[in-house]
Design a protein around this nucleic acid. Structure first.
Length: 636
RNA sequence: GCGCGGGUAGCUCAGCUGGAUAGAGCAUCGGAUUUCUAAUCCGACGGUCGUGGGUUCGACUCCCACCCCGCGCGCCA
């Protein structure tokens, strides 16, 4: 469908103009053709052959019943491009029927002028709200490497939507409720009662140790008991294991009692829970802040905030016969992705209440969808969550749709079902190809990861700026290290696992954060130099003159920016932005080598045209990085 | 068993609704600097795109089968 160009940018976007012209030419050449016409205009893959190309002729071949080259001839005969493109020549139609277009320099310049606005041509979406599920840490646990991707990718997606003018509500779905939290709360109360712990000086590190111990006490050898009974290892083994299990059962009972007190808002229990909450979140939010991820207290909506809604929600599901009983539990049956022996899809059970009356994470997620769509007004909900939860979300999305909880209640889309997307991400791997862990097998703390990246960056900064004050080196290294870390995560295809390598991410070559920041810093440096040399600011209104091949390549890259933002928002794939920015930075590096800006033998008009091109490049690099959640740098 | 994701150069990764000779970076080798910051640029070398079929004018891309790796599969989250 050829949508009409609406924004100021798309009116001058070569892709949009060419698409419209091609559609017109095709209609003129083949008036009998009805139905949709896709002009298939793209940036030319082979720069030597032209700037843009249309592949429409091949596709139309079957519909029209003529050889594609003949169709291409007919299209070209009707194509009116003399105002913006170079005249056709014998290379304009090539291969099976590619139509190559080379833009006139003036047309390219006009497009750049249209792009060169404060908004950089990014189309604004009116009247939309998107909820982004981001971060998702658990109480009493450090933010670790497993949370990196949710924080970084979730924030980048949120920023991309915000860049489109969409109202974004971040939701940190903290695991702050349920039996595991009751375990540690009970454990903490016991420690406190025994005088072994002062709540005022509680640290997350200490808390995490208590959590692990509580968990072990509850879980120890329940599996072993099963095994002993199954294999009949004799009364002595059975007695030993049973004694262990007795301890576990005791701990479990204690945790259950604590959970009941939590749920009934017992003040003493809640007070301890709150201490755990505050201790965890102050640490976690500090890590988010250090990562320049916009995850704050306002964005925090933990599982506990749904506690009161779960009972009524399940009642509602039962009353409307959406949930039914199955082996003592309550489930919502959904059409799953799996198939049975007969090849028919299996009805999958999405559990919303256990046989003991407890609720599950699917219950909370259903409540969350309902709140996000029907209370917060989201037309789209995006989950930046580990790919291993794909089946869970598939079920929950279907159950929510069936229950009507995803139905939009107000506004222009009232009655429609909100779009629900699981932006699934793969695992962070070590160099050995296995999940990234410390030597002792523990998960790596996020703060340690950040610190190591910053230290690596600091070593580079210090060695290259020996005269710079240490405080400034440290300041730059902090930005650079965090940029390197985030960019390494964002630049890989989201759904794939990726290998984590400090040395590669802080490298200044290749598709890395430092390389992009370096391009930006070089541009800033040009303008500092210009100012030193007393060059006036007339360049701001200068005519673009993309004549050198390097200038042309750079200009064509810059024009793609608005489209890339849209692509990222649609596919939820920030690595497209990374790849794009790397293209821009590479194109700029080649330009920088080949096209002097401030050298004495450069004419004033060329200098000003190039300064304006540098400025536009810098603003797009900067805007793109900021949209990814990476702050720009002045010097490095 | 069923399902989901993945398999592209020695390594790490791109490859947009099917399009021209499958691209980067690293590594290896060879060039460029009295610098608008060389934290760079230019070039060379390097690939049966897991395997085998199919659809198509054209397949890394779509379909089918199989192999290998990872992950998931009702009362944990």
């Amino acid at each position: 469908m050829a949508s009409l160009p609406s924004s100021p940018m798309s009116a001058a976007d070569p892709l949009a103009i060419l698409s419209a012209r091609f559609v017109a030419a095709i209609r003129a050449a083949f008036p009998d053709l009805n139905g949709e016409i896709d002009p298939l205009v793209t940036v030319n893959k082979n720069a030597a052959l032209g700037d843009f190309q249309s592949n429409a002729a091949m596709g139309l071949s079957k519909r029209i019943g003529k050889p594609p080259r003949e169709i291409a001839q007919a299209i070209v005969a009707k194509l009116e491009l003399s105002d913006i493109a170079e005249p056709f020549n014998d290379k304009s139609i090539a291969g099976p029927g590619f139509i190559n277009i080379t833009l006139k320099s003036a047309a390219l310049a006009a497009s750049l002028v249209a792009l060169d606005t404060p908004g950089l041509g990014v189309e604004q979406v009116a009247d939309a709200t998107i909820v982004v599920d981001v971060c998702g840490v658990n109480l009493a646990k450090q933010a670790h490497i497993g949370h990196l991707r949710s924080i970084v990718i979730g924030d980048a997606l949120a920023r991309t939507f915000e860049r489109q003018g969409i109202r974004v509500i971040r939701q940190n779905h903290v695991g702050d409720w349920g039996l595991p939290i009751a375990m540690v709360t009970g454990k903490l109360m016991a420690e406190q009662a025994a005088g072994r712990l002062n709540p005022a000086t509680l640290t997350l590190d200490r808390l995490e140790k208590l959590y692990k111990r509580a968990q072990q006490e509850c879980e120890r050898d329940l599996a072993g008991l099963e095994a002993v009974k199954k294999f009949g290892l004799g009364p002595k083994a059975l007695a030993e294991v049973e004694e262990q299990v007795h301890g576990a059962t005791e701990a479990f009972t204690h945790a259950r009692q604590t959970l009941v007190r939590l749920q009934s808002q017992d003040p003493a229990t809640i007070a301890v829970w709150k201490a755990i909450y505050d201790c965890t979140m102050s640490d976690v939010l500090a890590v988010c802040k250090r990562l320049h991820a916009n995850v704050t207290n306002e964005a925090t909506a933990g599982e506990s905030s749904y506690a009161d809604e779960l009972g009524p929600l399940v009642d509602d599901l039962v009353n409307r016969k959406i949930a039914e009983e199955s082996d003592g539990a309550l489930v919502v049956f959904v059409q799953g992705t799996r198939t049975g022996e007969d090849g028919q899809p299996i009805r999958e059970a999405c559990l919303v209440r256990k046989s003991d009356g407890g609720y599950l994470y699917a219950t909370t997620d259903l409540a969350a969808i309902r709140r996000r769509v029907q209370k917060l007004g989201a037309g789209r909900v995006v989950y930046a969550v580990d790919a291993r939860q794909a089946q869970h979300f598939d079920q929950v999305f279907k159950a929510a749709t069936r229950a009507g909880y995803a139905t939009i209640l107000t506004g222009k889309d009232s009655g429609a079902v909100a779009r629900m997307d699981h932006a699934a991400f793969g695992t962070v791997l070590g160099k050995d190809g296995k999940p990234f862990k410390t030597r002792s097998g523990e998960s790596v703390k996020l703060n340690d990861v950040i610190e190591e990246a910053v230290q690596k960056a600091l070593a580079e900064v210090a060695s290259r700026n020996t005269e710079m004050p240490a405080s400034q080196q440290r300041e730059i290294a902090e930005v650079l290290g965090v940029a390197a870390l985030k960019y390494a995560d964002l630049s890989n295809d989201r759904v794939k696992d990726y290998v984590f390598d400090f040395d590669r991410m802080v490298a200044f070559e290749g598709n890395t954060g430092p390389y992009l920041l370096n391009a930006l810093v070089r541009i800033k440096s040009i303008f500092r130099k210009a100012s030193e040399k007393g060059v006036d600011t007339n360049w701001k209104g200068a005519l673009f003159a993309p004549n050198a091949p390097q200038e042309k390549t750079l200009a064509l890259a810059l024009l793609r920016y608005p489209g890339v933002i849209e692509q990222v928002a649609d596919t939820l794939e920030p690595h497209r932005m990374c790849g794009y920015l790397y293209d821009v930075a590479s194109a700029f590096a080649s330009f920088y080598e080949a096209c002097p800006v401030l050298k004495d033998d450069v004419s004033a008009s060329t200098r000003d045209a190039r300064l304006r091109l540098c400025d536009l490049t810098g603003r797009i690099l900067s805007d793109g990085l900021v949209t990814l959640g990476i702050p720009p740098l002045e010097r490095m």
